[in-house]
Nucleic acid binder design. Sequence first.
DNA 1: CTGAAAGCGCTTACAG
DNA 2: CTGAAAGCGCTTACAG
Lengths: 356, 356
Amino acid sequence: MTENERRSGSVTLADVALRAGVTSAVVSRLINDSPSLSIRPETRARVMAAIEQLGYRPNAAARSLSRSKSDAFGLIIPDFDNPVYAKIIEGAESTAVAMNCVLLTGSAVGSGLSPAQYAERLGNGRVDGLLLAGAEDAGGLDQPSSRSRVPFLMLNRRVPGIDRYIVLDDEGAATLAVDHLTSLGHQRIAHLGGPVRADTAQRRLAGYRRAMKAAQLSIPDDYVAPADYTAVGGMLAMERLLKLSDPPTAVFVASVASAIGALRAATSHGISVPEQVSIVAVHDLPLAAFLSPPLTTVRMPLAELGARGLWLLAQSDASAKITEVFGAPMQLILRESTAVPRRTKKPISSVTRRKS
Amino acid sequence: MTENERRSGSVTLADVALRAGVTSAVVSRLINDSPSLSIRPETRARVMAAIEQLGYRPNAAARSLSRSKSDAFGLIIPDFDNPVYAKIIEGAESTAVAMNCVLLTGSAVGSGLSPAQYAERLGNGRVDGLLLAGAEDAGGLDQPSSRSRVPFLMLNRRVPGIDRYIVLDDEGAATLAVDHLTSLGHQRIAHLGGPVRADTAQRRLAGYRRAMKAAQLSIPDDYVAPADYTAVGGMLAMERLLKLSDPPTAVFVASVASAIGALRAATSHGISVPEQVSIVAVHDLPLAAFLSPPLTTVRMPLAELGARGLWLLAQSDASAKITEVFGAPMQLILRESTAVPRRTKKPISSVTRRKS
DNA sequence: CTGAAAGCGCTTACAG
DNA sequence: CTGAAAGCGCTTACAG
């Protein structure tokens, strides 16, 4: 190392060039294997050696600045605690890496920032695009006056007026679930839904209604119990459902998280699943298989969504409209939380129920 | 907008300065509210207006380059699917934001990259420091020849020869759990451990042995069943434990994920928890409360670890040694998966207990 | 094919 | 207090 090389913390292209006896343009071209570079093997070796010896690492900021491109994408999720996002991240991350980029994910909740604020902070120049997953509140980003110049794409979430989203076929998923229940012979099927304002919840609800209608089944008003995609919410909503004078024999739950709560509610009230009430939920999780009973779910192509979203974001230019209902196949994962209903028309009182 | 302003995609400091009739140095100083700037309120207003009208956003890459500081930190975790990391991320993220920085997290598994490769890709200049959580394989980063110039800190993981870590008191956690079990009267206590190579697992095992010794309890060889911190692993290991000729009346599980599997194993074999076997696990999860029975756990200060780690990383310089056993308090969360052991040697049928 | 040089958009001593 | 200018570390037309 020359004194120059050790002077600053970082070894630069110039340092490498100097040591290799070439110009930094050559080193740059070599590193990026630019087609316009024909270098003698011997020189190439010298450069490589210099890089090696100096431990040269390109500076991403400098590179980003001069190319106006960072080779990084951002993903903002509401909350790392919700396991559903893990799969989305995985999908997006692996395709980012495949594109020789990196995916940086952050959460709004964890940071205490709104998605828009987070996006601002991520700032121009740090990422080439932003994926916004399940943002309840896209506040600011939807405003045309939004400050962020970074192209974005909403994942599984629509906001009126923003034509930049890719969503899953939530209605289809609901249909799959409800059809499963009706084919088992259920008639009294309730829906433990998501937050009324979330459009995924709205679409799942719509799918439920449609499937019920198609099966010529009626929906008592109190059979639709909105919750909030959390376990506690699911637990509470399920308790309400269970207390109905004419309780459902099956419930279609809008999210696994809520389903876990719902399952717990049933169990703790001595109501057995699936004997007394069947449960099927949207979204599959590794965990679902380990509950007692293992949960029947509709597997949504979450990883694929993340992958597709990143791809779309990387391809299209910032101003293009993207309004896609992602068609990757969903799948009913049959486990043990659904079964044929016990004989209908029998008085409920014949069932032993207890409150805690 | 002048033609210049709309020409390029991005509005620059110069554009703002031009419109406000000042120099870009002034705008820069204003934005960063540099103390050496005393500007007339009227001029300030003009600059602000220009920023507003132009929708100016500072370019992070340029800023990073000129300051050699990115105001961003990276966090690399093995896998987003493991809910334990959610809390760590949360802690690190909120303290990053409090420092006016941003936390970028990525996963090794999701990306298919080793932590070292990921760190390389994140590159110099993109982040000011890297937190490495639970890296099983720190391969490369531990090498002194490592290419990354970014200061890093290992979170809850030690690698021989690297004096850059902060760990939790895993031994203490194990003691807490085992003491709980012995105080309940258990004598045949098994340990469903983590991967033998993971040092967290080693420390939990050590804690278990120590606590058992302190209680003058012996540990049959087959009472130590290593698993892999996953539900499947926990399930398999638990089955082995349950099949023992002299099975334990309680098991201390090294991770919640495994505990979920263990619980499932017991349940599906008709063995009731806690009546026939008590289960206590390290790490608490929101979910633990919703299992049947709700899991008794040792809550570790995960968020605090993330927060402390980020702080440490941000403070100390890259070459300093950081070897901290983080002392934030742990807590036994008593739920329903542990109980007094059934009378030993008595037939199981003699016990009558019901839930809720 | 390769070198010299300008430029990416900021920040910040250094002079006025 | 503020302006002019150099510099952060790269990339890349543009000439040789």
